[in-house]
Simulated assay, not measured.
Amino acid sequence: MAGGAAVAAVGAGGALAMPASADEATEAAGTASASAAGTAKTCYKLTSETTEGPYYIDADKLRQDITEDKEGIPLTLQLKVIDSETCKPVADAAVDVWHCDALGLYSGYESFSQGGGTAPTDAPSGTPTDVPSGTPTGEPPSGGGGGGHEEPTSDTRYLRGTWKTDKQGRVTFKTIFPGWYQGRCVHIHTKVHVDGEWTDAGYEGGHACHTGQFFFDEESVLASAVVEPYASNTAERTTLTEDTIYDQSGAAGGLLKLRYDKRDISKGVRASLTVGVDPAATHDGQDAPQPGTSASASPSASAS
Protein backbone atom coordinates (compact mmCIF):
# COMPACT_ATOMS: atom_id res chain seq x y z
CA MET A 1 0.00 0.00 0.00
CA ALA A 2 2.42 2.70 1.16
CA GLY A 3 4.96 3.40 -1.52
CA GLY A 4 2.73 2.06 -4.28
CA ALA A 5 2.22 -1.48 -2.98
CA ALA A 6 -1.16 -3.04 -3.76
CA VAL A 7 -3.52 -5.05 -1.57
CA ALA A 8 -6.40 -7.38 -2.30
CA ALA A 9 -9.63 -5.84 -3.60
CA VAL A 10 -12.40 -4.71 -1.26
CA GLY A 11 -15.55 -6.76 -1.50
CA ALA A 12 -19.00 -5.34 -2.14
CA GLY A 13 -20.55 -3.44 0.70
CA GLY A 14 -17.45 -1.54 1.83
CA ALA A 15 -16.88 -0.66 5.46
CA LEU A 16 -19.59 -1.11 8.06
CA ALA A 17 -21.75 1.94 8.68
CA MET A 18 -22.40 2.65 12.33
CA PRO A 19 -24.28 5.32 14.31
CA ALA A 20 -22.39 8.02 16.12
CA SER A 21 -21.86 7.49 19.82
CA ALA A 22 -23.30 9.95 22.34
CA ASP A 23 -19.78 11.24 23.00
CA GLU A 24 -19.18 11.88 19.32
CA ALA A 25 -22.54 13.60 18.94
CA THR A 26 -21.73 15.94 21.82
CA GLU A 27 -18.27 16.52 20.39
CA ALA A 28 -19.70 17.39 16.99
CA ALA A 29 -22.27 19.75 18.49
CA GLY A 30 -19.58 21.58 20.43
CA THR A 31 -17.47 21.85 17.31
CA ALA A 32 -20.34 23.29 15.27
CA SER A 33 -21.02 25.92 17.93
CA ALA A 34 -17.36 26.93 18.08
CA SER A 35 -17.12 27.16 14.31
CA ALA A 36 -20.28 29.25 14.07
CA ALA A 37 -18.93 31.66 16.64
CA GLY A 38 -15.62 31.84 14.80
CA THR A 39 -13.73 31.00 17.98
CA ALA A 40 -11.76 28.02 16.70
CA LYS A 41 -9.27 27.73 13.86
CA THR A 42 -9.39 23.94 13.94
CA CYS A 43 -12.32 21.70 14.77
CA TYR A 44 -10.40 18.87 16.40
CA LYS A 45 -6.93 18.26 17.76
CA LEU A 46 -4.55 16.28 15.63
CA THR A 47 -4.20 12.79 17.01
CA SER A 48 -0.65 12.22 18.27
CA GLU A 49 1.85 10.66 15.91
CA THR A 50 3.88 7.76 17.29
CA THR A 51 6.63 5.47 16.12
CA GLU A 52 5.58 2.66 13.76
CA GLY A 53 7.46 0.04 15.76
CA PRO A 54 9.32 -2.93 14.28
CA TYR A 55 6.33 -5.22 13.64
CA TYR A 56 4.30 -3.56 10.87
CA ILE A 57 3.32 -5.60 7.81
CA ASP A 58 1.99 -3.51 4.92
CA ALA A 59 -1.68 -4.24 4.21
CA ASP A 60 -1.29 -7.98 4.24
CA LYS A 61 -4.91 -8.80 5.13
CA LEU A 62 -7.87 -6.78 3.84
CA ARG A 63 -10.56 -7.58 6.38
CA GLN A 64 -12.55 -6.24 9.34
CA ASP A 65 -12.52 -9.34 11.54
CA ILE A 66 -8.85 -9.84 12.40
CA THR A 67 -9.34 -12.32 15.27
CA GLU A 68 -8.58 -15.56 13.41
CA ASP A 69 -8.32 -18.28 16.08
CA LYS A 70 -6.92 -16.12 18.87
CA GLU A 71 -8.57 -16.46 22.29
CA GLY A 72 -9.36 -13.40 24.33
CA ILE A 73 -11.98 -10.86 25.35
CA PRO A 74 -13.99 -9.83 22.28
CA LEU A 75 -13.23 -6.25 21.22
CA THR A 76 -15.12 -4.10 18.72
CA LEU A 77 -12.97 -1.16 17.61
CA GLN A 78 -14.98 1.71 16.08
CA LEU A 79 -13.01 4.57 14.53
CA LYS A 80 -13.98 7.81 12.81
CA VAL A 81 -11.30 9.52 10.72
CA ILE A 82 -11.73 13.27 10.19
CA ASP A 83 -9.74 16.16 8.77
CA SER A 84 -8.62 18.06 11.87
CA GLU A 85 -8.84 21.42 10.05
CA THR A 86 -12.26 21.12 8.40
CA CYS A 87 -13.83 18.46 10.64
CA LYS A 88 -15.04 16.72 7.48
CA PRO A 89 -14.90 12.92 7.40
CA VAL A 90 -12.05 11.34 5.47
CA ALA A 91 -13.78 8.82 3.21
CA ASP A 92 -12.18 5.89 1.39
CA ALA A 93 -9.02 6.01 3.51
CA ALA A 94 -7.24 2.72 4.12
CA VAL A 95 -6.90 2.09 7.85
CA ASP A 96 -4.44 -0.50 9.17
CA VAL A 97 -4.61 -1.93 12.70
CA TRP A 98 -2.33 -4.50 14.33
CA HIS A 99 -1.58 -5.61 17.88
CA CYS A 100 -0.22 -8.44 20.01
CA ASP A 101 -2.25 -11.36 21.39
CA ALA A 102 -3.16 -11.99 25.03
CA LEU A 103 0.35 -13.26 25.80
CA GLY A 104 2.18 -10.41 24.06
CA LEU A 105 3.02 -12.10 20.75
CA TYR A 106 2.83 -10.37 17.34
CA SER A 107 1.92 -12.45 14.31
CA GLY A 108 4.78 -12.74 11.87
CA TYR A 109 7.27 -12.00 14.63
CA GLU A 110 6.81 -14.61 17.34
CA SER A 111 10.57 -15.24 17.52
CA PHE A 112 11.16 -11.54 18.30
CA SER A 113 8.16 -10.78 20.52
CA GLN A 114 8.56 -13.49 23.15
CA GLY A 115 5.60 -12.21 25.14
CA GLY A 116 4.82 -13.33 28.66
CA GLY A 117 3.62 -16.88 28.15
CA THR A 118 5.52 -20.13 28.00
CA ALA A 119 9.27 -19.70 27.59
CA PRO A 120 10.69 -20.69 24.18
CA THR A 121 11.97 -24.25 23.99
CA ASP A 122 15.34 -23.09 22.67
CA ALA A 123 15.95 -20.55 25.45
CA PRO A 124 19.57 -20.53 26.64
CA SER A 125 20.36 -21.77 30.12
CA GLY A 126 23.18 -21.31 32.57
CA THR A 127 25.27 -18.27 33.33
CA PRO A 128 27.04 -16.49 30.47
CA THR A 129 30.80 -16.47 30.73
CA ASP A 130 31.43 -13.54 28.39
CA VAL A 131 29.47 -10.78 30.11
CA PRO A 132 30.38 -7.43 28.48
CA SER A 133 31.80 -4.64 30.56
CA GLY A 134 32.19 -0.90 30.16
CA THR A 135 29.82 1.67 28.68
CA PRO A 136 28.29 0.96 25.26
CA THR A 137 28.96 3.47 22.49
CA GLY A 138 27.35 4.29 19.18
CA GLU A 139 23.70 4.25 18.10
CA PRO A 140 21.21 1.56 19.22
CA PRO A 141 20.25 -1.11 16.67
CA SER A 142 17.36 -0.20 14.39
CA GLY A 143 15.12 -2.98 15.66
CA GLY A 144 15.12 -1.75 19.25
CA GLY A 145 14.12 1.46 20.98
CA GLY A 146 14.30 3.47 17.78
CA GLY A 147 11.36 1.60 16.28
CA GLY A 148 13.15 0.40 13.13
CA HIS A 149 11.21 -2.05 10.97
CA GLU A 150 11.99 -5.77 11.06
CA GLU A 151 11.15 -8.28 8.32
CA PRO A 152 8.57 -10.95 9.28
CA THR A 153 9.97 -14.28 10.41
CA SER A 154 6.78 -16.35 10.01
CA ASP A 155 3.68 -16.53 7.78
CA THR A 156 1.17 -15.95 10.60
CA ARG A 157 -1.04 -12.84 10.28
CA TYR A 158 -3.52 -12.96 13.18
CA LEU A 159 -4.66 -9.67 14.76
CA ARG A 160 -3.80 -7.62 11.66
CA GLY A 161 -6.10 -6.06 9.11
CA THR A 162 -6.85 -3.21 6.72
CA TRP A 163 -10.23 -1.74 5.77
CA LYS A 164 -11.65 1.38 4.14
CA THR A 165 -13.53 4.24 5.79
CA ASP A 166 -17.09 4.86 4.63
CA LYS A 167 -18.59 8.21 3.57
CA GLN A 168 -18.77 9.28 7.21
CA GLY A 169 -15.11 8.40 7.77
CA ARG A 170 -16.04 5.40 9.90
CA VAL A 171 -14.50 1.95 10.03
CA THR A 172 -15.04 -0.99 12.39
CA PHE A 173 -12.76 -3.89 13.32
CA LYS A 174 -13.54 -7.07 15.26
CA THR A 175 -10.65 -8.39 17.33
CA ILE A 176 -9.67 -9.25 20.91
CA PHE A 177 -8.51 -7.09 23.81
CA PRO A 178 -4.70 -6.91 23.44
CA GLY A 179 -2.30 -8.34 26.00
CA TRP A 180 1.02 -6.86 27.06
CA TYR A 181 4.76 -7.45 27.10
CA GLN A 182 7.70 -6.01 29.00
CA GLY A 183 8.27 -2.30 28.52
CA ARG A 184 4.91 -1.30 26.98
CA CYS A 185 1.40 -0.64 28.18
CA VAL A 186 -1.57 -2.27 26.41
CA HIS A 187 -2.01 -0.75 22.94
CA ILE A 188 -3.10 -1.15 19.30
CA HIS A 189 -1.12 0.21 16.35
CA THR A 190 -2.72 2.05 13.44
CA LYS A 191 -1.91 3.72 10.12
CA VAL A 192 -4.21 5.86 7.96
CA HIS A 193 -3.45 5.99 4.21
CA VAL A 194 -4.99 8.59 1.88
CA ASP A 195 -4.79 9.83 -1.72
CA GLY A 196 -4.49 6.30 -3.04
CA GLU A 197 -6.96 4.55 -5.32
CA TRP A 198 -9.19 1.55 -4.64
CA THR A 199 -9.01 -0.60 -7.76
CA ASP A 200 -9.75 -4.22 -8.68
CA ALA A 201 -6.26 -4.96 -7.40
CA GLY A 202 -6.88 -3.19 -4.10
CA TYR A 203 -5.54 0.07 -2.66
CA GLU A 204 -2.68 1.52 -4.66
CA GLY A 205 -0.45 4.56 -4.21
CA GLY A 206 -1.16 7.32 -1.74
CA HIS A 207 0.67 8.03 1.50
CA ALA A 208 0.33 7.51 5.25
CA CYS A 209 -1.06 10.69 6.81
CA HIS A 210 -1.12 9.21 10.32
CA THR A 211 0.83 6.59 12.25
CA GLY A 212 -0.35 6.16 15.80
CA GLN A 213 -1.38 3.91 18.65
CA PHE A 214 -4.58 3.41 20.65
CA PHE A 215 -4.43 2.95 24.41
CA PHE A 216 -6.55 1.41 27.17
CA ASP A 217 -7.22 2.82 30.63
CA GLU A 218 -5.83 1.03 33.67
CA GLU A 219 -9.23 -0.04 35.00
CA SER A 220 -9.97 -2.06 31.88
CA VAL A 221 -6.49 -3.60 31.75
CA LEU A 222 -6.65 -4.69 35.39
CA ALA A 223 -10.08 -6.21 34.75
CA SER A 224 -8.75 -8.14 31.74
CA ALA A 225 -5.70 -9.40 33.66
CA VAL A 226 -7.76 -11.82 35.76
CA VAL A 227 -9.42 -13.41 32.71
CA GLU A 228 -7.77 -16.28 30.82
CA PRO A 229 -5.63 -16.32 28.75
CA TYR A 230 -4.46 -12.91 30.03
CA ALA A 231 -4.09 -14.32 33.54
CA SER A 232 -1.37 -16.63 32.16
CA ASN A 233 0.70 -13.70 30.89
CA THR A 234 3.72 -13.51 33.20
CA ALA A 235 5.39 -10.49 31.58
CA GLU A 236 6.00 -7.46 33.74
CA ARG A 237 3.35 -4.92 32.76
CA THR A 238 3.99 -1.22 32.16
CA THR A 239 1.15 1.06 33.24
CA LEU A 240 -0.36 3.81 31.11
CA THR A 241 1.40 6.53 33.11
CA GLU A 242 4.75 4.72 32.84
CA ASP A 243 4.62 4.17 29.09
CA THR A 244 7.20 6.03 26.98
CA ILE A 245 5.02 6.19 23.85
CA TYR A 246 1.67 7.43 25.21
CA ASP A 247 1.90 11.20 25.69
CA GLN A 248 -0.68 11.38 28.51
CA SER A 249 -2.98 13.67 26.50
CA GLY A 250 -6.15 11.58 26.63
CA ALA A 251 -8.18 11.11 23.44
CA ALA A 252 -5.79 13.30 21.42
CA GLY A 253 -3.03 10.90 22.41
CA GLY A 254 -5.03 7.84 21.35
CA LEU A 255 -6.80 6.95 24.62
CA LEU A 256 -9.88 4.93 23.65
CA LYS A 257 -13.40 5.41 24.99
CA LEU A 258 -14.40 2.01 26.37
CA ARG A 259 -17.78 0.47 27.15
CA TYR A 260 -18.16 -2.90 28.85
CA ASP A 261 -19.93 -4.65 31.73
CA LYS A 262 -17.88 -3.65 34.78
CA ARG A 263 -19.04 -6.85 36.48
CA ASP A 264 -17.73 -9.10 33.70
CA ILE A 265 -15.39 -7.67 31.06
CA SER A 266 -15.14 -11.10 29.43
CA LYS A 267 -18.54 -10.44 27.78
CA GLY A 268 -16.78 -8.04 25.45
CA VAL A 269 -15.56 -4.46 25.06
CA ARG A 270 -16.62 -1.72 22.65
CA ALA A 271 -13.87 0.83 21.99
CA SER A 272 -14.26 4.04 19.99
CA LEU A 273 -12.24 7.10 19.03
CA THR A 274 -12.32 10.01 16.58
CA VAL A 275 -8.96 10.26 14.85
CA GLY A 276 -8.01 13.75 13.67
CA VAL A 277 -5.55 13.72 10.78
CA ASP A 278 -3.96 16.11 8.30
CA PRO A 279 -4.58 14.43 4.92
CA ALA A 280 -1.99 16.64 3.23
CA ALA A 281 0.79 15.58 5.60
CA THR A 282 2.96 12.48 5.47
CA HIS A 283 3.47 10.70 8.79
CA ASP A 284 4.96 7.24 8.30
CA GLY A 285 6.16 6.84 11.87
CA GLN A 286 9.73 7.85 11.14
CA ASP A 287 9.06 11.48 12.04
CA ALA A 288 7.36 10.70 15.36
CA PRO A 289 8.94 11.34 18.77
CA GLN A 290 11.07 8.34 19.67
CA PRO A 291 10.45 6.42 22.90
CA GLY A 292 12.25 7.57 26.01
CA THR A 293 14.97 5.57 27.68
CA SER A 294 13.44 5.36 31.14
CA ALA A 295 11.29 2.27 30.59
CA SER A 296 12.75 -1.15 31.31
CA ALA A 297 11.80 -2.44 27.88
CA SER A 298 13.29 -5.48 26.26
CA PRO A 299 15.29 -4.42 23.16
CA SER A 300 13.15 -6.49 20.79
CA ALA A 301 9.85 -4.92 21.76
CA SER A 302 10.44 -1.48 23.28
CA ALA A 303 9.21 0.49 20.30
CA SER A 304 6.33 -1.70 19.21
Rank of each mutant, 00 (worst) to 15 (best):
F177E: 02
P132Q: 11
H149R: 15
G144T: 02
V131K: 07
A123G: 04
T162C: 09
T121H: 11
K191N: 00
Y181H: 14
T153Y: 07
R170V: 09
H187S: 04
G147F: 02
G146H: 07
Y181T: 08
C185F: 00
G126C: 14
H187F: 06
D130H: 13
D122P: 07
L159K: 00
G138V: 12
A123Q: 10
P120C: 12
P178C: 13
K164M: 14
P136M: 13
Q182Y: 01
K167Q: 15
S142L: 11
P140S: 14
G183H: 01
T121G: 11
G147H: 02
P152A: 12
W180Y: 03
Y158S: 12
S125V: 15
G126E: 08
P120Q: 13
G183N: 04
K167C: 01
L159C: 08
T165C: 06
G183M: 05
R184T: 08
H149Y: 06
T172C: 05
T156Q: 06
P152V: 09
E139N: 12
I176Q: 00
S133K: 10
D155I: 03
V186H: 01
T153W: 06
T127S: 15
G144C: 08
T135N: 10
Q182R: 13
H149P: 05
G147Y: 00
K191C: 04
T135H: 04
T172P: 00
S142T: 10
G145D: 08
S154P: 05
G134S: 11
G148K: 02
T190M: 09
F173Q: 07
C185N: 05
K174E: 11
T175V: 00
F177P: 03
H149S: 14
P178L: 15
V171R: 05
I176E: 00
P136W: 12
T129K: 15
G117R: 05
T175A: 05
W180F: 07
G138N: 08
D155M: 09
S125N: 08
S154V: 10
R184P: 00
G169N: 02
H149I: 10
V131C: 11
P124G: 09
V186K: 06
G179V: 05
S154T: 15
W163K: 02
G161T: 01
T165A: 03
E150Y: 01
P178E: 05
K174M: 06
Y158A: 14
V186T: 07
P128N: 11
D166H: 03
H187D: 08
T137I: 13
G117I: 02
K191M: 07
G144R: 00
T129N: 14
G143C: 04
Q182K: 12
P132S: 11
P140F: 09
D155E: 12
T172E: 01
D130T: 15
T153R: 10
T127F: 11
I188T: 00
D130P: 04
E151W: 09
H189N: 08
S154F: 04
K191Q: 06
A119S: 10
S154E: 15
G146K: 04
